[in-house]
Simulated assay, not measured.
Amino acid sequence: MITHFQFKSLFENKDMPGWHFSFYYKKQKYTGIYHQNGDIQWTSEKPSDEDVDQLKEQIHELMLFHVYDK
């Protein structure tokens, strides 16, 4: 389960899409960039292959809730 999820805009103009995000999973901190099309660019070590799909899904749901469902 993802904990301590945070995000902030990539740009000063907050209307432009793109966000930095960070969270903890299994006591490991992960960071990345969430693009408008839902792609994720990891800026930290990438999660293991067995976890990455599940984490991408959770990140997408969190971003939809926090950014798009205002």
Rank of each mutant, 00 (worst) to 15 (best):
F21R: 01
F23N: 05
P17H: 04
F21L: 10
D39P: 10
T43C: 05
F11Y: 13
T31K: 08
F11E: 00
M1N: 09
W19Q: 04
K27P: 07
S48C: 04
Y30N: 10
F21I: 02
H20S: 05
E50S: 08
L55F: 04
Y24G: 04
F5H: 00
W42R: 08
H35S: 15
Y34N: 07
I2P: 09
W42P: 07
T3K: 12
H60Q: 10
W42I: 03
Q58R: 09
S48N: 05
Q54F: 12
Y25W: 04
T3I: 15
V52N: 08
H4R: 11
F23H: 06
M16V: 01
K26D: 14
W19R: 04
I59L: 08
D49P: 01
W42A: 03
F23M: 08
L55Q: 01
E12Y: 12
I2S: 12
E12M: 14
G18K: 05
G32D: 07
N13A: 08
K29W: 11
P17W: 08
K56T: 00
F23Y: 11
E45Y: 05
Q58P: 09
P17S: 03
S9A: 05
P47Q: 00
L10G: 02
Q28E: 13
K56M: 03
H35P: 13
Q41G: 09
T3L: 15
E57V: 03
D39E: 15
T43D: 06
T31F: 09
D53E: 06
L55C: 03
Q41V: 02
Y30A: 12
Q58H: 10
D53R: 00
E45R: 07
W19C: 07
V52G: 04
P47K: 00
